[in-house]
Design a protein around this nucleic acid. Sequence first.
DNA 1: ATGCGCTTGTGAACGTGAGCACAAAGTCGT
DNA 2: ACGACTTTGTGCTCACGTTCACAAGCGCAT
Lengths: 232, 232
Amino acid sequence: MPARAQGRGIPEATVARLPVYLRALSTLAEDGAGTVSSEELATAAGVNSAKLRKDLSYLGSYGTRGVGYDVDYLVYQVSRELGLTQDWPVVIVGLGHLGHALANYGGFASRGFAIRALVDADPELVDQQIAGLRVHPLEALEDLVRRLGIAIGVIATPAPVAQTICDRLVSAGVSSILNFAPVVLAVPDEVEVRKVDMSIELQILAFHEQRKLATAALGDVSRELAEAVGPR
Amino acid sequence: MPARAQGRGIPEATVARLPVYLRALSTLAEDGAGTVSSEELATAAGVNSAKLRKDLSYLGSYGTRGVGYDVDYLVYQVSRELGLTQDWPVVIVGLGHLGHALANYGGFASRGFAIRALVDADPELVDQQIAGLRVHPLEALEDLVRRLGIAIGVIATPAPVAQTICDRLVSAGVSSILNFAPVVLAVPDEVEVRKVDMSIELQILAFHEQRKLATAALGDVSRELAEAVGPR
DNA sequence: ATGCGCTTGTGAACGTGAGCACAAAGTCGT
DNA sequence: ACGACTTTGTGCTCACGTTCACAAGCGCAT
């Protein structure tokens, strides 16, 4: 896996943090802040300031020494780097509870994404209105993608059909996929997939939770041992 | 950030992949596979086989050279390592579209998690039944957490109240939090937070999408240049 | 029994990312 | 005009993660 994005060469880890910075910056802008120091912004974003400065330095030298960063200017620069100065049309496939929630989520529109098409296999759902959009039947998928020039697809279907939907999206020209179905999707190299999986996140939490319990129990044992041996 | 989980010392990156392996293994088990080689399992999980073997080797030597891994046995070992042999009670706070979707998601129960309590601030929702559970008012939060011995909390509220909810969960004794709200939560060191943020994932996709466009355009330019110069 | 073929487990090399600590570069008061 | 102070940008070091490549180990056929 090449971790450096080719081109200007922004590390992948940095790219993943830019949206967090962007959100913190937007909040600051709303609160009327004119400039912000790396220390403040880092705290707001939950990282340390050295990392933040290094991350921002990959975009260019947009700060002023002794002062900090101009909030509005930095918002613009980060947005531009992330490609959010243009609007990306998005299709959502699968409108169960989750797809429904995604369609109604306001956070997309405000950040350069426009949900342009909804598709579901269930005849009950087809032609219904969700978030101001009509639900299209599965057959219409390829046509919608081509006609609306959609490059980003969101899969919110049950796991068993996710790969099929994925294949159809890719062959229709979608080159980025956000997958909510709990399966590993196979795609050609030039297609980028990111997955969001709540059950995986919970399992990671469970691992650490268990570890806490285990070490706590171990602590108890050593304390008991110490008591058994008696005060030295 | 210490990347090695203390104790037996399984790398954090490995822990994050174990749930993926577990899912692939479960599928294989359902299909009646008795054993599986690292190569097969790696393909199913979307990683390379060397990484898979190293990951599994942190759990112990559970494979047989020349043969592969016993599927059922490995399922058990991975589950045990992740702490999924016991059931973890979970509370969901916030039952908008997303919380609703989470409450109804079947994937949790089958993997060691039991949604035990639903809480929402909206009087309209309180006392309604969702996924077979009654929705409790916000005031009941601390009592529910203590009484049911809940260690894992899921925050699916609007962003502005997420930090407050988080603080209340933590002070009631929750030590792991899965956060769907688009904010960076501040918590004490001993509390583990993981966040799921679809808008961040989309922005990362947009970055790569833009890069593809840029390099494609660059390709066009070089081709045009080459033509302008003429065949050599 | 013995050897052959297959697959695991791991040492070692390499690449990526994090964080310290400081020089460079700006602002502001005098 | 200048010096004190503040904050950025970055060279360097260390830790973490990935991958290669191969020896060790196991089963099966002969």
